[in-house]
Design a protein around this nucleic acid. Sequence first.
DNA 1: TTGAAAGCGGTACCAT
DNA 2: ATGGTACCGCTTTCAA
Lengths: 338, 338
Amino acid sequence: MAKVDLKTLADELGLSVSTVSRALSNKPDIGVKTKNMVLTLARERNYQPNAYARSLRYRKSKTIAVVLPEIANNFFSQVIEGIEEVAAENEYHVLVYLTHESLQKEINIVRHLQSGRVDGVLISISSETVNVDHLNDIRNMGLPLVFFDRISKKLKTPSVTTNNYEGGIQATMHLIEAGSKKPAYFSLSQNLSINQNRMKGYLDALEKKGMPNCTYILQGGNDHEVNVGIMSKLLKSSDRPDGVFACVEELAIATYEACSSVGLRIPEDVKVVCFSNLHTASLLQPSLTTIRQPAFEIGKAAAIILFNLLESNEKIEYSNEKKIIDSILVKRNSTAVH
Amino acid sequence: MAKVDLKTLADELGLSVSTVSRALSNKPDIGVKTKNMVLTLARERNYQPNAYARSLRYRKSKTIAVVLPEIANNFFSQVIEGIEEVAAENEYHVLVYLTHESLQKEINIVRHLQSGRVDGVLISISSETVNVDHLNDIRNMGLPLVFFDRISKKLKTPSVTTNNYEGGIQATMHLIEAGSKKPAYFSLSQNLSINQNRMKGYLDALEKKGMPNCTYILQGGNDHEVNVGIMSKLLKSSDRPDGVFACVEELAIATYEACSSVGLRIPEDVKVVCFSNLHTASLLQPSLTTIRQPAFEIGKAAAIILFNLLESNEKIEYSNEKKIIDSILVKRNSTAVH
DNA sequence: TTGAAAGCGGTACCAT
DNA sequence: ATGGTACCGCTTTCAA
């Protein structure tokens, strides 16, 4: 089956290309008989209009880009599922790009997006991203841009996040109320907005509880084995924490493994809580207390904001909607009082 | 910053569009001085060639599509990560489409892909997909198509899978050797190649062990709560199984929840094993014995085959490579001998 | 070395 | 109601 274009159909029917185009686009000024002939043949030949010819003509790609650190991750994969749902409803296509936490990769990706390939961009920035000139370029081109989860305050553009600060407060309060005297914060990159806000919640909660000198912040990273190692080391020290508020799921898992390797019990010796939306949180040994993040809804909300921007041809430069979708504390055994 | 095209640059420099194009494409027949002028201005203006104009001209999109049932899933999200890695190396873009196990959605997606939007397609078919005419259309257009994980034997096209049959044998043998007298198979859709092969492994293993009359196949589906319900019901019956080989991770999780709800202990009362690549398998209560699937490698391998097809302009109709990447049994406590 | 023009596959305006 | 044509942005052949 050779590929079929308007000219193929036109030649075969002895019509002009413009007539065939009209018939297929359901235009009014066309004879009923002609139209049916064209439609019939088009169906028979399984004609599909060339997407890029159309994009070129309309200056619209019907495509959006999702740029994010990784996808093999409960949170991000659910976000994408939410984004895809909205995109599919709008008959848009979704390009996915991974930065693997590298600013340089993020810059390259973003540069490629300035080629008219997409009509809008959804991004969760890398942990290396502090300078956001590359994102400014996108904005300045008039390309709608929406942040989700990891945002930059340096850029005035819509965003969808969760209540990181309040969640941080809740998590920390909960640790203390469960009996933790020395709750530590297991931190992700200090650059990240989510980390900054969760950590601030941690610090403020300790302050409120009259324990401002009990703070302990352990810096984690992207390498799982390293994270397990530093947590194990900390847990072996004499003034080890008796509670851990992990910024993200991966760090809580690392904490579980660390406890196991140094022979400490959860929750008897160490209580653990983290931001997460792990399905199997309740099946872990012990079941994991989480600040459950509505990942799917965050993706949907971000996509909906983007599509609103795409539809309203307003001056998007001034849109600055900040949507917050709350995470909620789900108490399980990792913070049980014993 | 207005959008900049060749004409913008040409006008500003008092050159023709073709000269500017030549300079940027690094063509030989161009004056050094002119070339530098052009390159300098292009950089200054951050010129990005229009992707779709290029695609139209070259009849190449530098884009591939990944079509799969869902993405909020350990297995599939890791597969995509593998695919993305290879695509990024080849400077290709990746469109992601979700079928949500719906044949109709799969057909619609695939139809849209016949618009020249992509140069190749990677697909893991939906559980409803038996008839593959829509995939044949793709093939007949000359669009390279590679199956991963869930394949159809009706189509002669390359595929990457894991050793489902042997894994099924191993899993079942292991259950029996751990003491299970009545191992059940918790089945996914009967349509699926992965399910058929794993189930055949189960049946053959029972045969080999001289227990051909001990087979029990429980039909699961896509609704988690329903799966938990039917497994709970089975576990409450008098001739309940004392071992469960779950086709996929989700069904094993459902089994855990069912055991918990009916008060049966794993592994004392019921032993559980499944195909999975769950990171937290070892942290579950009890830790879960898995046939560990190399999801990332499967994605990479599928993408590599696709890119080989794209590069070699051979008659792809005759390529039929069947790559198998082995999964391995990882014994944990859910099948411990007690 | 440079420019003009055709064409990739559509759409839409202007004739007829 | 239908056809001719210009154009979307870029590449490439052909002429100069």
